[in-house]
């Protein structure tokens, strides 16, 4: 495998596995490529021929509605054939290994895999296997692996921030909530630092922060009010109840009191600050409905931009 498994020999995008390790130029190229794709949704025929004749396999080993749907829409707007594998009811349940599944789908002329897996590194394993079996024209997109990375979410968040704020190098951005369990947070932090955001803040209770989180280049705050002061962008995370083991939190009500985004806490940020959330939201836990539905929230535009960003990633993979 080449030194950077995500890039081909010409420095183009070969797989999208994580934002960590992606050169800044590639991240910017993805955002730039996504720009004209936002217009396709306004056409009579919402299709471009960029992936015509290609087969995209959505391999979701873990549940997801929004991510799978937006990948499916993105691939279909590029004219690809999309095959959704409901993995929990497929051969994996009968004992087939991940790589056997991949080999079988490659034998069915798969051109691209969109992979969501509960284990960190599963998409890397597939990419490595495709390299080892000399399948240079089959590409992998990580749609979320364990606690590791969710690069297209990080990229669509960057697209959203750029859309409203233009210049990354003047911003203070806060990532708030369950950073410990969040692959989204990791992708966001890597993307923000790659794009030159001078101050990234991590706001969370001690129990929901990974050890040595400062090494990612963030300033840590345990007091949300202090952390939100003067920020341009508030990136809320979902409280991942399903990933929690043991008693990391007293109760959702207690969490909301200290780390839920309410209008009075948001008032400490800059007046034109925007609020992002990757969804699905736990209203009344990490975010108050008044904020989620308020004028500073850009949560629904995030979803729309997510389609254009996923179109950009898939076209860049297919056309190197």
């Amino acid at each position: 495998m080449a030194r950077n498994p995500q890039l081909n020999s010409h420095g183009g995008l070969r797989h999208l596995l994580s934002i960590e390790g992606l050169p800044r130029e590639i991240v910017v190229a993805i955002l730039d490529t996504a720009e004209p794709f936002t217009e396709v949704a306004e056409r009579e025929v919402k299709k471009l021929p960029l992936l015509r004749g290609k087969s995209v396999f959505n391999l979701f080993f873990e549940n997801s509605t929004r991510t799978r749907t937006t990948f499916e829409i993105a691939a279909k707007r590029l004219s690809a054939d999309v095959i959704n594998l409901n993995v929990s009811t497929s051969s994996t349940a009968k004992g087939e290994t991940l790589l056997d599944t991949v080999d079988n789908l490659v034998a069915m002329q798969a051109d691209m895999f969109v992979v969501r897996h509960a284990s960190s590194g599963a998409p890397y394993l597939i990419a490595q296997h495709l390299e080892a079996t000399r399948r240079p024209n089959v590409h992998v997109v990580n749609a979320g692996d364990g606690r590791h990375a969710h690069p297209t979410q990080g990229l669509l968040d960057m697209y959203t921030i750029r859309h409203y704020k233009r210049d990354f190098t003047q911003l203070t951005v806060a990532v708030v909530g369950d950073i410990l369990h969040s692959r989204v947070a990791r992708s966001q932090i890597h993307a923000l630092t790659t794009l030159g955001v001078p101050e990234v803040r991590a706001i969370a209770p001690k129990t929901l922060l990974p050890s040595e989180v400062e090494r990612l280049g963030v300033r840590v705050f345990h007091d949300m009010r202090e952390g939100l002061r003067g920020v341009d962008v508030v990136m809320m995370l979902r409280l991942q109840n399903e990933r929690m083991t043991g008693s990391l939190l007293p109760s959702p009500q207690e969490y909301f009191k200290f780390f839920g985004l309410t209008e009075d806490k948001l008032a400490l940020a800059k007046p034109d600050a925007i609020v992002l959330h990757p969804g699905p939201m736990n209203r009344g836990v990490e975010i108050d409905s008044a904020v989620a539905d308020g004028g500073q929230a850009v949560i629904l535009p995030q979803v729309t931009f997510g389609i254009a960003v996923r179109m950009a990633v898939m076209s860049m993979l297919a056309h190197g």
Partner: peptide, 20 residues
């Protein structure tokens, strides 16, 4: 840019304009 028939040879331009 997105409708060219020689994309596989030339690759995708990052700076395509939005059609209007």
């Amino acid at each position: 840019a997105f409708y060219r028939d020689d994309l596989s040879g030339r690759g995708l331009h990052a700076k395509a304009r939005r059609s209007d």
